[in-house]
Design a binder for these strands. Structure first.
Lengths: 163, 163
DNA sequence: CATAAGTAGCTTAGCGGTAAGCTATTTATC
DNA sequence: GATAAATAGCTTACCGCTAAGCTACTTATG
């Protein structure tokens, strides 16, 4: 029934030893969220590396892919979606364009703007990469039943909504 | 009963539209975990800024604080605990020492090593900062009942254990 | 005891991000 | 229609991290 103690339990226990009046319940939640995010982020980074792209670069082509045909968005739309500054976006687009996974074309309706589109090669790569990435995530969830995953999803949605 | 749709729901719906055969359940979990980690990380960063330190620097003095008297650890122990390279640790210690929140002394038992200790000022600051940080986290959890927080903690512990 | 291997902490180069500032272009206002 | 304000994307300076290499010192091995 009871779960194993983990590193976060050890940290909350340490805090209780030196500051027993603190309510450590929040750090039991967020401490684990930070650790899961970091560990999974590293794992995803490693997996995408096999496709020659970083996790951030994957996010760009994946955003274009899931936007549907004609797989075209502006740098502005991409940087807004990915919560990235335009400077950061420029760098990612430079790399992906150089790798032949997408191309930048002038926006015919706004001469300030660009249209970013996935190439055929980019489309093929992102379709493989998203499948591979989901497999890594799915494997990380094997310890939980389908019902627990659904429960966790609901609690996380509720938590995220309140932030 | 049913929760509001959020940005992650929109993303999974987009994927379903273009790749209906994908099982998007994992990204419903990890997508939210990434977003919560980022949003809370930013919020904590902002809160600690009021104490003149970054989140990473807080983690250093907090680790020393919760280690208990005499609040002394080696740079090696700190970088291992914080999952940081020694190079990164050097930088954080430089800043904190310069700010007068900790001091480095030679390890009397090992002339390669150092002993890092919180100063009185550092101790005072970290005790205020940890309280303030917990308050930010507690506020983020107000949408969840105590039972839900406990449930979420258990599910996250289980998930983290399997990664 | 000599020496090889391992360890502690620091330095440097490089990477990917932000913030701020730039030019070119579009939109709103008079 | 002139002009002020807003917007798109890029560039630059900087920041914090990692990876790799360094010196100083300690531990293990013959």
């Amino acid at each position: 029934m009871s779960e194993e103690k983990d590193a976060v339990d050890a940290i909350t226990a340490q805090w209780f030893a030196v500051r027993p009046e603190l309510d450590t319940a929040p750090m039991a939640v967020f401490g684990r969220i930070y650790r899961i995010a970091k560990a999974m982020g590293d794992a995803m980074e490693e997996r995408y590396q096999r496709f020659g792209i970083s996790r951030g670069e994957f996010d760009v082509v994946a955003t274009l892919r899931r936007s549907g045909a004609p797989y075209t968005l502006s740098p502005r739309q991409l940087s807004a979606t990915l919560m990235l500054t335009t400077g950061g976006m420029t760098g990612r687009l430079d790399k992906l364009e150089k790798a032949g996974l997408l191309c930048r074309k002038p926006d015919p309706h706004d001469r300030r703007g660009l249209q970013v589109t996935i190439t055929d090669r980019g489309l093929e790569l992102v379709d493989e990469a998203v499948t591979a990435g989901l497999e890594v995530q799915r494997a990380a969830l094997t310890g939980l039943s389908d019902e627990e995953v659904a429960q966790l999803t609901g609690l996380l949605r509720k938590l995220l909504a309140g932030i």
